[in-house]
Amino acid sequence: MSSRENILKAIRGIQRERKELPTLPDFKLEGDLVDLFIRAIQANKGEVMGEEEFNNWVSSCDFHSIISLSEPFQSLSTFELPEDPHHLNHLQLAIIQGQFGVAENGAIWLNDSQLPHRVLPFITEHLVIVLSKENLVDTLHQAYERIGEEHSGFGLFVAGPSKTADIEQSLVVGAHGAKSLRVVLM
């Protein structure tokens, strides 16, 4: 008998009481979603900015390698998406369109349709996600409701920059992935 059969057989042989799955209430938040979202991103060590502030920031930075996949900022791209994601290693800035954000924790949903290379939001030195204020939901419950039966090979909630506190619990932003996250709220 295969291990698969052994394991399943062992489980089937155990007397267990029947249990029911609970229905999940539709927990919501109190307060203004935009405010809550901004505070959540800040708590996760990200930043939220408007279009103008973002433009000022980009022009002050003098990045020489930018990939922008967000329509309003397409002109900022300095090079084409490479076929091999390893070539993204020295990418300084990726600008991605976010699907929607979650006000309770700042998480932003991306999937394969925003990520031609799944590694893009991780490997880039700085990450910018463009998000419409209209596209905010209260909590993760509404978030999964919204994702629904969407079928994507990969989906990602990104809520901040790469960070760690593994050395004496001191927070350091910029572990292996993006060293910063900026959300441009349109």
Partner: peptide, 14 residues
């Protein structure tokens, strides 16, 4: 913290 900064959902290989 309210959520980990990366929460990846793997459904099929690239």
């Amino acid at each position: 913290q309210p959520i980990t900064n990366y929460n990846s959902h793997f459904r099929s290989p690239a």
